[in-house]
Design a protein around this nucleic acid. Structure first.
Lengths: 279, 279
DNA sequence: TTGCTCCTCACGTCACGTGAGGTGGC
DNA sequence: TTGCTCCTCACGTCACGTGAGGTGGC
């Protein structure tokens, strides 16, 4: 029989750990003196402790370990638990490798620019949402902005504030192209509305669904520069460095409803690109 | 200005997170109503929140993030912090890959044997320790055991219990070879002792140092089977699966001093192999 | 006036490390 | 008797999630 100090020295663990394992019933000393509270361990408890340590090193929680070693657990359950751990670890390793690339691209950026980038890209996910919109093609930006103004007014008039969230523009055409702009303009809603909302000269807006998105690479640009090259460039660099590719039409989310007062600027816009991991 | 609910919906974070960041001073709302405690955020606080989220995603702690974004931090410090994070992550990824192999070898074992192995291998490290010993060659196991008995008695007589730890045998010869056994037998001590301790027919034991070991692959065998093939086999399998190789003489640590009473068995022995990562 | 949103505690998380303050054992 | 070892609280960790219980705002 060993006192806790000897036993901990043999196993090269702390006394505190042994007391803790005792307190949670994971490893109870063979004998505890009632009067003094002294714990006495026997040598043949060492294999059990070693099993605990070995399983802990595999990444199992003490709860899981307790379940595995306490009674006769069917092999099938052990297999399931270990396989689940394996999958979990594989997933973590993939995420970790991604994070490593993120950090390395930030470091490279520091070398290039001498400072942290002005734009921070953040990954988000978004649920599907009701979406009231119109879609059209435009020869140029000016016409698109004019239309956006009309759509905004229609929304302000026709959709009660408690039912609407943000003004969202979907861009189906490529930014690079000088040709036509194919845009859908509308408002995300908290619930479907049945009311007809008209845009002058365009007719009724349509109820659709803004699809959910697992991964959105997002960046916020201020509204003062209308098409922020820098924000888009930052997104592009980031996607390349982290091996994402675009998986759907770009979304522009307006944080505040613009054009409400004559002097009101577009304040901030979040650009969102649905992305997937490149192969 | 947004109330906390709107702001959290825009940024897709929880209100609790925003309150927490406020409480630790990481992101203070632009205005807080004194009377009601309501927090009001402005749109231009979103870039700061995004920077926080982006850095958090890289694995920085909120403390580190606060240091990086609160004042004008020199670029050099940012670089250092990110480089440190990168190294840390690389290390974690290597450890994780190792753990993954451990798990996979356990799973393979389950398939083969239909149960968890009887022996659990545990990695430990050990500091250097004073060591009082004799080294000799033996034609066979019987002679070695006879000698171990003598050495044990000499220790029991000559070294006071409070100065000694475990009986340790170092095996310089390979287990596989049928030829001579080259063994060092002695006792690990809590401090150097100067007293002469004689083994009958061998002369004085020598004070040496048991070198420290970064990584020891260890397994406990019960003393009843003298040379446990199974324990050694388990260690071998484990080292192969996890790509370690032997980096020094094997140690056998006797948990209790054997041969003290005529009927006393050797109870448990921990076999320790110094190992290094294979290339 | 009724929901809705917001507020402030306060506990729980996971596996111990680290004192504080006190007592048994050789 | 003096150290030494052991004991039992209890706080701290990290970044919030999750109620509980209560109040302002449209």
């Amino acid at each position: 029989m060993f006192r806790i100090g000897e036993f901990s020295q043999i196993a090269r663990v702390s006394g505190r750990l042994l007391r803790y394992y005792d307190s949670i019933g994971l490893l109870t000393p063979q004998h505890t003196d009632e009067a003094t509270g002294y714990r006495y361990y026997s040598a043949d408890q060492l294999p059990r402790l070693n099993r605990i340590l070995a399983l802990k090193h595999l990444g199992l929680s003490l709860d899981e370990i307790a379940r595995l070693i306490d009674d006769k657990v069917p092999v099938e359950e052990i297999r399931r638990l270990l396989a689940a751990k394996r999958d979990e670890l594989q997933h973590e390793l993939r995420e970790g490798a991604l994070r490593l690339r993120h950090i390395e691209s930030r470091l490279a950026q520091l070398e290039d620019a001498g400072t942290l980038a002005d734009y921070d890209i953040v990954l988000k996910s978004a649920p599907a949402q009701p979406y009231l919109s119109v879609r059209a093609s435009f020869p140029g930006m000016e016409q698109a902005v004019a239309m956006l103004r009309e759509v905004t007014r229609a929304i302000a008039r026709g959709v009660p504030p408690q039912h609407r969230e943000n003004l969202v523009v979907l861009a189906y055409s490529d930014f690079e192209e000088e040709s036509e702009l194919d845009l859908e303009m509308g408002v995300a809603l908290t619930r479907d509305i049945r009311k007809r909302v008209d845009v002058p000269g365009r007719g009724a807006m349509e109820m659709r669904e803004l699809p959910s998105a697992e991964r959105l690479a997002t960046v916020v640009r201020s509204g003062t520069d209308y098409r922020s090259h820098q924000a888009l460039a930052a997104l592009g660099t980031w996607m390349e460095a982290n091996r994402y590719r675009i998986a759907g039409p770009c979304r522009e989310v307006f944080l505040e409803l613009p054009f409400q007062r004559p002097d009101q600027q577009v304040s901030f816009v979040e650009i969102q690109f649905p992305v997937t991991q490149a192969a």
